[in-house]
Nucleic acid binder design. Structure first.
Lengths: 341, 341
DNA sequence: CTGTTAGCGCATTCAA
DNA sequence: TTGAATGCGCTAACAG
């Protein structure tokens, strides 16, 4: 390792040429003779030289960076902990790095959503991928109505002016509920806090109940977490207020917490209570009982988010995508049901 | 929303003062009269003005950004999928954003580890948090021997010249193994691929066996994943080659995969086979049976990584930290054991 | 208290 | 085929 050459000027001096020649040589510009190019590139490599990104960005007015923005509910805990989000984030980081983009990970309180424009305005990021429209769809709409390079994870709404990639949550909610009906469940509760996307799942649940001629719906308000699900369920059971034979959980995490509480209380899943989750997180297949759920394919979702954004960046006109929401039937819901008369 | 003011110069013109005054006013420099400061800050706010980060970074020769580098094994799958890593990443993002730092998320093939210096050299990041020394400790040592602002997640090694935050993997491996011995296990296998950290856990496993007078160790080579663990275990069971009554799994994921395979084959956990995991991922407490494991506290770990790095950045002298590795006893390993004669 | 000036490192226009 | 000069937007030393 020879001495440190940290700027173009250093390299130029070392090579005995001008800065502009080095700049061109490094970008493999054909204006420069092949010989010079080779020589300079070799030199740069030898000295482990890399361009100063800030200077380059300033000059080029772009950043080669995509900001992934996580909008965090202010009253809930502020950390990024949802396994589904974390998992799709991993996919996005992969995809983006394959396209030679850097990923800037930022989290914002929901109510500060308006600040996210700054990443674009200050050329901090070339594009944005946003999670959490759930609690701030209206903010986003106000901000993103122009043709900005932004893709939002979540459901399309008629009002929204921005491009989204997401799954059909109403359909998903309907599917699991219908499935539980087919398994013979009579009293089916919906467990989850009704934020944006989960509210849609709830809506699907309602639709399915109504289609089955059931008038009463049951909502258990549980925020996204194992612990909360466990506690709420345990309390209900302790007070003898748990009267359901089926539960549509708004997420796999919630389903897991409930299953534990039920099991500790001596209830069998699925015999006494059939349960479905939502997301198909990695462990869903590996628990006992394995979890019936709606798959949200993180690989497909992440890839689609990235591709949509890159297409936008390339000037193509893009539209929102609705990903499929397949029902994955496993043990936690299967108990023969009516179909087996 | 008035017209777009995108640079300091624009703001200065609008305010009828010089650029430097605006610059100072925005940084709340007391050189500027309170009145002027207030006026300019109000103006900036009204126009939703933010500084251009690239220009600012270039001028200041710093970036207010921490790069989190994930070193990915080249022959394994390239994606960021380990739930433990993802979870600690969430914590880091939190902590860093509370300290007003941005997080640049980058993944690199292990063998390209030497490129990670560039983030520092080009002032792309003020500091680095690195995961995955496991497979590239020697590369890192070669790179990071200077007093660079870098903190590596993982175990300390005598050779390593860099600062680490991690848990005592040897101790952890020893603890679970001793625990299984206490539960009466006679033939205990270690399940996991022997990379850096897991090799240390394996070493602890060996120590515990030797201390118990057991000469034979059993190693099942399983990479980090549910699926691989499931397949390998299933194959062993199908061939009647699974002869263990205890398993020390190198990660919770592996434990889950194995438990599923065992359960499908009609083996009971913990009665027929007692199993321990490693990490204490969120679901560990919520599965059936709940998983005995070694806790790696992601909150503590992430916080410590960040604090150590920030201290380094502040010029303080810091040293490596070894976090506690508590044994969390749950159902998957408990079967009375010898102590109940 | 405020303004003028210079320069961070790079890409690019214009001139040679 | 190469070099000299300019400016991206910002901060800070120096002057006033």
């Amino acid at each position: 390792m020879t001495k440190k050459l940290s700027t173009l000027a250093d390299l130029a001096r070392e090579a005995g040429v001008s800065e502009s020649t080095v700049s061109r040589a490094l970008s493999n510009n054909t204006l420069i003779s092949q010989k010079t190019r080779d020589r300079i590139q070799a030199l740069a490599h030898e000295h482990n030289f890399t361009l100063n990104t800030a200077a380059r960005n300033l000059r080029l007015q772009k950043s080669n960076t995509i900001a992934v923005v996580l909008l965090i509910d202010s009253d809930a805990d502020q950390s990024v902990s949802d396994p589904f989000i974390l998992s799709i984030l991993g996919v996005i980081a992969d995809e983006l790095s394959q396209h030679r983009y850097d990923v800037l990970l930022v989290s914002h309180r929901t109510k500060d959503a308006k600040n996210i424009r700054q990443y674009l305005d200050t050329k901090r990021a070339d594009g944005l991928i946003v999670f959490g429209q759930g609690d701030s769809g209206e903010h986003l709409s106000a901000l993103l109505n122009q043709n900005l390079p932004v893709v939002v994870w979540g459901a399309q709404t008629p009002a929204a002016s921005y491009v989204t990639v997401g799954t059909d949550n109403v359909l998903g909610g309907r599917r699991v509920t219908e499935h539980l009906r087919e398994q013979g469940c009579q009293r089916i509760a919906f467990a989850g806090h009704l934020s944006f996307e989960t509210a849609q799942r709830y809506q699907g649940y309602r639709q399915a109940l109504e289609a089955a001629g059931l008038r009463n719906s049951h909502h258990l308000d549980i925020h996204f977490s194992y612990e909360d699900a466990y506690q709420v369920t345990k309390t209900l059971l302790d007070n003898n207020e748990f009267s359901y034979d089926g539960v549509v959980a708004a997420s796999d995490s919630i389903a897991l917490g409930m299953i534990r509480a039920l099991s500790e209380a001596g209830k069998r899943v699925p015999e006494d209570v059939a349960i479905t989750g939502y997301d198909d997180i990695a462990v869903a297949a590996y628990m006992q009982p394995s979890l019936t759920t709606i798959r949200q394919d993180t690989r497909a979702g992440g890839t689609c988010l990235v591709n949509t954004l890159l297409a936008q960046l390339a000037g193509e006109s893009v539209q929102s995508t609705l990903l499929d929401t397949p029902l994955i039937v496993r043990q936690s819901s299967q108990r023969g049901g009516q179909s087996h008369q």
